[in-house]
Design a protein around this nucleic acid. Structure first.
Lengths: 343, 343
DNA sequence: TTGAAAGCGCTAACAA
DNA sequence: TTGTTAGCGCTTTCAA
């Protein structure tokens, strides 16, 4: 059985309050400090955070709810947030919901029972009604990568419209006019914004947004491959394509290879957020990148401010970060060449 | 403030023990059950797992210590284990140690304070002395992917020797004799075993294990690229290469592309455990695969048995799983062609 | 600065 | 089956 504060008190002949004070950085007489330290050493005493949590009503634990732990975007952010939090003494309980809304709701419930002090969530569903219980308990919630209409809380996003708009503009500048896009499910926040970005770029360039050039995937590798296939079948005259998420970028490339289409000679390509893969591919892919480390830093800061900051009534904020762009060799700069003419 | 059992007791006029019994699946008179359920509903009561944990001395929480959360092998296992554990009511606290032994030790300490019921760890360091505290507290520890000499606990591994031996044999059967290998750091368990597998295959085929054909990387993408460069520089006559982990496989491919070497015409290639990437590459890569889902299942079962099983004194076991192999197009079947003759 | 004592929300032993 | 009660290990008044 592990030693308790009581044991330390007995050993040193001091009271519990003194031990507690010592453990929490209070003032203790020098000679008592020495006695306490000796006793702690001797008895291998370790604070019981569970008991402390019960008493203080703060578990120093943060719940993290993710759609998929397997998605690089998620792990990159979480690995960083976890590190920052642990440095502050917070543990993170991660729940992977397999992009399933019901599981997400269960996870919230699960974490509520555990009395986590706060929640970081990248929601799968469109409404977040089950988060209300959390918020009304006065516990901070930080949303990553999506906004939720009914929920009033802090939020860290990237500027999805601009990201896609800029990327598509690069294709337009390279002379492309028939630019396909593989976008995500219509009910997902990021997919909507990215789609908007595409439309903005096309319209500003005086190009029509044609239905046939738009195919939806489900943000998975397989979905990206299937969408690419559809896109190619429907558009023999397409000269460029933009893929709007990391997994689908990979899937699209697999399919392009399968079909024997040459990048960039037959098709110019811009992908999303899969840096290592983009570098490893032949040719290197041009991609939009997301500032995962910065996102993590912002999430951490917003959360910590709510957890330990002074101004508890602070209005909730939304932080919007800029994306990056890595130039590869997957965009044909002339771009005038018709795919069908090579085909 | 959240409702407590006391509130339910007051509301229903019942005693605490009755409520507790109800909550823990004990027998309660039908009409009391109804009263309790009504009260729970009305007061939005939720069990406080923290208090329960303090009382029962079981937190229903498992600590997970990983070298890198960003490594696909780790996330694939963890996402699965987390799911299985949560279904049993266990939360998982994940600690990413950035492959740093000191951080790993800190994580053990951190989790000890949190009174986790058990530990799943993929150790970075070679000795695990800091795990002893855990084990002597009577808490189960399950090791993934490595054995630790001084530590007596359950362990789930893959058969690294055979995995590599079989892969290298395929290269030998294809006619290759000068086969390079990129292996991991000499102090890492898996690297040692994989190296042994390479040596076994070569020796059994009557081929000399030449120092110049062996380069060490650090299990990272960059390390894989650097190692590949060295290997090529030192061995203009090498016709095939085996890369012994997932990240280095990617790095090696990046470097091979950089150098303009053609797979499989100039160099046959077998990589490790990066299925999606292997499929996306041109040509598709032949790779050794690891049964991550099975590993996760075994880890879960071993842990649960210790946690809730009857035979507490059960001797610790080591489970060794078989790896797979996916045939790609990256091995030149003739193999007799000398690289230098094309070069 | 220190000690005594109450109590966080729950479980479990015992009694009824 | 149910109620009473002690106590898990800690923090936090309040007094000294």
């Amino acid at each position: 059985m592990a030693a308790t504060m009581k044991d330390i008190a007995k050993k040193t002949g001091l009271g519990l309050a003194t031990i507690s004070s010592y453990l929490n950085g209070g003032n203790v007489r020098e000679k008592n400090r020495i006695k306490i330290e000796a006793a702690i050493e001797e008895l291998h005493f370790e604070v019981n955070e569970v008991a402390r949590g019960l008493k203080t009503n703060r578990t120093k634990t943060i719940g993290v709810i993710l759609p998929e732990l397997n998605i690089a975007f998620c792990t990159q952010i979480i690995t960083e947030v976890e590190d920052l939090l642990r440095n502050q003494g917070y543990a993170t309980i991660i729940c992977d919901c397999r992009s399933n809304e019901k599981r997400e709701e269960e996870a919230v419930e699960f974490l509520l029972h555990r009395r986590v002090d706060g929640l970081i969530i990248m929601p799968s569903g469109k409404h977040g009604s089950y988060l209300k219980k959390f918020i009304s308990a006065g516990k901070p919630v930080v949303l990553i990568d999506r906004e939720l209409e009914e929920i009033e809380c802090d939020c860290v996003l990237v500027d999805n419209e601009s990201a896609v708009k800029d990327a598509v503009e690069k294709l337009i500048l390279a002379g492309h006019t028939r630019i396909g896009i593989i976008i995500g499910p219509s009910d997902i926040y990021t997919a909507k914004r990215r789609y908007t970005g595409y439309c903005m770029a096309m319209e500003q360039a005086g190009l029509a947004v044609e239905e046939r050039l738009i195919v939806r995937g489900d943000y998975t590798i397989e979905g990206g491959a299937a969408a690419m296939k559809k896109l190619v079948n429907k558009n023999p005259d397409m000269t460029a394509v933009f893929v709007s998420n990391c997994e689908m970028t990979m899937g699209a490339i697999i399919e392009i290879n399968e079909l024997g289409i040459k990048i960039p000679e037959q098709l110019s390509f811009v992908g999303f957020d899969n840096l290592e893969f983009a570098k490893a591919n032949i040719p290197k892919l041009s991609i939009v990148t997301q500032p995962t480390k910065e996102i993590a830093g912002q999430v951490f800061e917003l959360l910590l401010e709510r957890l330990e900051g002074t101004d508890k009534q602070k209005k909730s904020q939304t932080v919007k970060l800029k994306t990056g762009f890595i130039e590869g060799k997957s965009v044909n700069v002339s771009g005038r060449k018709e795919w069908s003419s090579i085909y």
